[in-house]
Design a protein around this nucleic acid. Structure first.
Lengths: 135, 135
DNA sequence: ATGCAACCCGTAGCGACTACGGGATCAAGT
DNA sequence: ACTTGATCCCGTAGTCGCTACGGGTTGCAT
């Protein structure tokens, strides 16, 4: 233990591009395994940890929930032949994203309409308020 | 007090289309005013409350934060002449929404790419995992 | 040897709710 | 008048994914 390529939590976090406190949080909730410790009790990470944490960060950036990531990590073992389960998770997530985009686009349309009707702000009965009041 | 058109919290919530507990929450954080009470201590709402709560719900549906809604409510007093401040809030929010749409669209593209490369699930090295592993 | 950066841990806070539990009240039916 | 069952009361804790705080310890370079 304490190999020459071991990482402190701070270096691990920086290497993976996440907050240090987030790493401890991931360990608490069981998303990251508890690493070895130095004699003084500091966490000592191996390169696998770095790969795993990077995986998590990228999955988060793609909008996967921590639970989805848990599932993906379990399916990401090397040597698995097919990826149908991974595909299912990713497809479901993709649908979520598309639905969210559709929602937001509708909101944007409504707001844009109202804001444009505000013109230069001289309208007596504010169109935005009007929309919200739900007349 | 206790007019014939008074509402219980449950009826108010149903009329405005929000959860009952949410109404109490809004009162706790000062977004809804504390209403009159019956002799037994039950909340008794007037029609203005219903209008205000509906306003809040619609604003939430349009993605405004509770803080933004607080500001909008303050600006929604009848008799205000111009709506430049409201317009500013709404425009800023609209920009947020557009940015979020752009973000999500990028995610969707990346995911769609990867999922489509999965094909029928017979690919040996799962493209989705590949993307996440960040090769 | 000393200084200070980095680490330790537990806990609390964020936003916007939602849920729970144990008791009180209300309104309708008999 | 009484009973029943729906509704309401309040405080507290849980959700998600972190982030921040504080007071103490360790690690490492000088």
């Amino acid at each position: 233990m304490s190999a020459r390529n071991a990482l402190t939590i701070g270096r691990l976090a920086a290497a993976a591009g996440v907050n240090l406190e987030t790493v401890r949080y991931y360990e608490r909730i069981g998303l990251m395994p508890a690493p070895d410790r130095t004699e003084g009790g500091h966490r000592s990470y191996a390169p696998e940890h770095r790969a795993r944490l990077t995986f998590i960060r990228r999955a988060r950036e793609l909008g996967f929930s921590l639970d989805e990531i848990r599932a993906l990590l379990a399916l990401a073992q090397p040597g698995r032949r097919s990826c149908s389960e991974v595909k299912a998770i990713a497809s479901a997530h993709l649908q979520d994203i598309r639905a969210k985009i559709a929602d937001l686009s509708r909101l944007a349309d409504v707001l844009d309409e109202a804001v444009r009707r505000c013109g230069d702000g001289d309208v007596p009965d504010c169109p935005v308020i009007h929309v919200l009041a739900g007349v």
